[in-house]
């Protein structure tokens, strides 16, 4: 599995398709934390709202970097679609960790408010929850579930917009609300839900891959 994730990672780095979402992430973080962004946990709400759509974009990227035929060859080489789907989810999760680390540490250096280790830890966890949820959304809105690029993009945008509207019912909503009110009691539940969503997205890719190939 390590070799498979490494191969997908090298292919992703070569494709440079990770760059647009990463640059967007850094640009918005730069703007968000250019001045006084407010109290530590409260300020994390903004970057959590950012990491969600960026990770969704990353989810689409990890699902579609390989050409469909190349993906078929990789699936046969790896010994089945399940392994490729898992490796893709793992790679996406690694990317999400990078996005979360960036978003968590950025304000520590730029925001004039005090940051304790506990606050940074909570912030990192909240970013991971939002990021993993986004990753699952991206994977569920792209190949093999939605094959064409246009509808895939529309689906991601629609789901992200609906999530912001849905309030606290989603892992992302629970984190944003919790950070704004400085109460992250929902964190364990939201984290479980986010991980479950990624697992479901990988399982869907595993089952649908051979049917849509």
């Amino acid at each position: 599995m390590t070799a498979l994730v490494r191969y997908l990672a090298v292919d992703l780095l070569r494709s440079q398709r990770y760059l647009p979402p990463l640059l967007l992430h850094c640009a918005v973080l730069g703007m968000m934390f250019s001045g006084d962004a407010g109290e530590a946990l409260f300020a994390y709400a903004g970057s959590c709202a950012l990491v969600y759509p960026v990770a969704a974009w990353l989810g689409v990227v990890v699902a579609t970097t390989e050409d469909p035929t190349q993906r078929a060859v990789t699936a046969v080489t790896a010994g089945g679609w399940g392994r490729v789907a898992s490796a893709q989810a793992l790679l996406g999760a690694l990317g999400t960790v990078v996005l979360a680390v960036l978003a968590t540490l950025w304000p520590v250096f730029t925001n004039p408010h005090p940051y304790t280790a506990g606050v940074v830890g909570l912030g990192f966890a909240a970013h991971l929850v939002c990021g993993l949820t986004g990753l699952a959304v991206g994977m569920l809105c792209s190949r093999p579930v939605i094959v064409r690029t246009g509808p895939s993009l529309l689906a991601v945008v629609a789901v992200v917009a609906l999530t912001y509207k849905a309030g606290r019912g989603t892992p992302v909503g629970a984190m944003l609300g919790g950070l704004a009110q400085q109460d992250l009691a929902a964190l364990p539940f939201a984290a479980g839900a986010a991980v479950l969503l990624v697992v479901v997205a990988a399982a869907v890719a595993w089952r649908l891959g051979p049917r849509r190939a």
């Binding site: 078929a72 699936a75 046969v76 089945g80 051979p210 049917r211 190939a213």
Partner: peptide, 8 residues
């Protein structure tokens, strides 16, 4: 493709 396991 079916025998190779690419498509079910």
């Amino acid at each position: 493709r079916i025998i190779a396991g690419v498509t079910s």
